[in-house]
């Protein structure tokens, strides 16, 4: 399933030049804010939960997910270089699964790890808040990667659509509108965070844990399968 050559090509494309810089900016911002908040307010569980929930999980994770997920395949399809992957006796599912792992790994490193560190900086993991949000961010990384990888195989405007989804649906509607919450990766991940964190931590999700787990699995698995299917019948636009 995992193809090391596909992984190497994807890593290098993903972490090359400008994209790596963008990937570093947001986590750096989170850590700076976390340090500043701690310095000014001292350790505070409620503030920690607000920052990790409101900024990190609602904005940082989906944004990094968009960059890593679409970046793992979109540019290759755009410039046609994907032809060198596809003109090989390599299973299409294996290509997608490898790219998913690379995208999810990248999202985890640039989103989940900073969340964990920021949590420790903010309140020293009191009430397990840092770990809880890091778990949520890791799970969300996988789901977002699958979602945006699929988007990258389906649309040439994957980044724009992904950004709109991440910023408007996940960050805005998904946090505010009650009905929409059930259909938000963020809320599913929050359900897990709620489970992990101490009872005193102010983390709540509008989705029950079993529902969340099922929906996460469906989105990740379904997205991967569909992306593999898409790749199998990928038509390369000629230059005629």
């Amino acid at each position: 399933m995992y193809n090391p050559t596909v992984a190497r090509l994807t890593w290098r494309a993903l972490l090359g030049r400008r994209r790596a810089l963008i990937l570093c900016v947001l986590p750096a911002l989170l850590l700076v804010v976390a340090a500043a908040v701690r310095a000014m307010n001292g350790a505070d569980d409620a503030v920690t939960s607000q920052l990790l929930g409101g900024f990190a999980l609602a904005t940082l994770v989906p944004l990094i997910g968009v960059i890593a997920g679409t970046g793992a395949i979109g540019p290759e399809i755009d410039d046609g270089s994907v032809v060198y992957l596809l003109s090989k006796p390599v299973g299409r599912t294996s290509i997608i699964v490898t790219k998913l792992l690379v995208a999810a790994g990248t999202t985890a490193v640039f989103a989940a790890v900073p969340v964990l560190v920021a949590g420790f900086v903010l309140n020293g993991n009191s009430q397990q808040i840092a770990v809880a949000y890091a778990v949520a961010a890791t799970v969300a990384s996988l789901a977002y990667s699958a979602l945006f990888l699929l988007l990258g195989t389906v649309s040439r405007h994957a980044v724009v659509i992904g950004l709109v989804y991440a910023l408007i649906w996940e960050a805005l509607i998904g946090s505010l509108v009650p009905g929409a919450k059930t259909l938000s990766v963020q809320q599913w991940a929050l359900a897990l965070a709620e489970k992990v964190a101490g009872s005193g931590a102010d983390i709540s999700s509008s989705v029950a844990v079993p529902t969340a787990v099922v929906l996460l699995a469906v989105v990740t698995g379904g997205g991967t399968l569909f992306a593999g299917q898409k790749l199998r019948t990928l038509t390369l636009a000629g230059e005629e």
């Binding site: 046609g80 060198y84 299409r92």
Partner: peptide
């Protein structure tokens, strides 16, 4: 996919992992 064991492809487009 198995047909690519026999086929070599030289596409017209320029995209080819420039890095």
């Amino acid at each position: 996919e198995d047909s690519y064991r026999h086929i070599g492809l030289v596409p017209e487009r320029e995209g080819m992992y420039d890095f």
